[in-house]
Simulated assay, not measured.
Amino acid sequence: MKRRERTRQLIELGGLVAKADLIELTGDDRAVLLGLLIDAAAMLRGETRERQLLLWRRRGQRAFDAAATGL
Rank of each mutant, 00 (worst) to 15 (best):
M1G: 15
R3S: 10
R4P: 02
R6S: 10
T7H: 09
T7I: 13
R8I: 14
R8G: 03
R8L: 14
Q9Y: 09
Q9W: 09
L10Q: 11
L10V: 11
L10S: 07
L10C: 05
I11H: 08
E12F: 02
L13E: 13
L13G: 06
G14R: 07
G14V: 01
G15Y: 04
G15I: 07
G15R: 02
G15T: 01
L16D: 11
L16A: 04
V17W: 03
V17P: 05
V17G: 02
V17R: 03
V17L: 14
A18V: 06
K19H: 11
K19F: 15
K19G: 05
K19M: 13
D21R: 06
L22C: 02
L22S: 02
T26D: 03
G27Y: 01
G27V: 00
G27S: 01
D29F: 01
D29G: 04
D29T: 05
D29M: 06
A31H: 01
A31S: 12
A31G: 06
V32G: 08
V32N: 03
L33T: 04
G35Y: 00
L36H: 00
L37Y: 06
I38C: 10
I38A: 15
I38Q: 15
D39E: 12
D39R: 12
D39F: 06
A40Y: 12
A40D: 07
A41V: 05
A41E: 15
A42V: 08
M43G: 14
L44Y: 07
L44P: 05
R45T: 10
R45I: 01
R45C: 09
G46H: 05
G46C: 07
G46P: 03
E47A: 14
E47Q: 08
E47F: 03
R49C: 08
R49G: 05
E50T: 12
E50Y: 03
Q52P: 06
L53Q: 07
L53A: 00
L54K: 11
L54M: 06
L55P: 02
L55F: 12
L55Q: 07
L55I: 13
W56I: 11
W56V: 15
R58P: 00
R58G: 13
R59G: 03
R59S: 14
G60N: 12
G60R: 10
G60D: 04
Q61D: 11
Q61K: 08
R62Q: 12
A63H: 10
F64M: 13
F64R: 14
D65C: 03
D65K: 04
D65V: 03
A67W: 09
A67T: 06
A67L: 08
A67D: 10
A68K: 08
G70F: 06
G70Q: 07
L71I: 09
L71E: 15
L71G: 08
L71F: 04
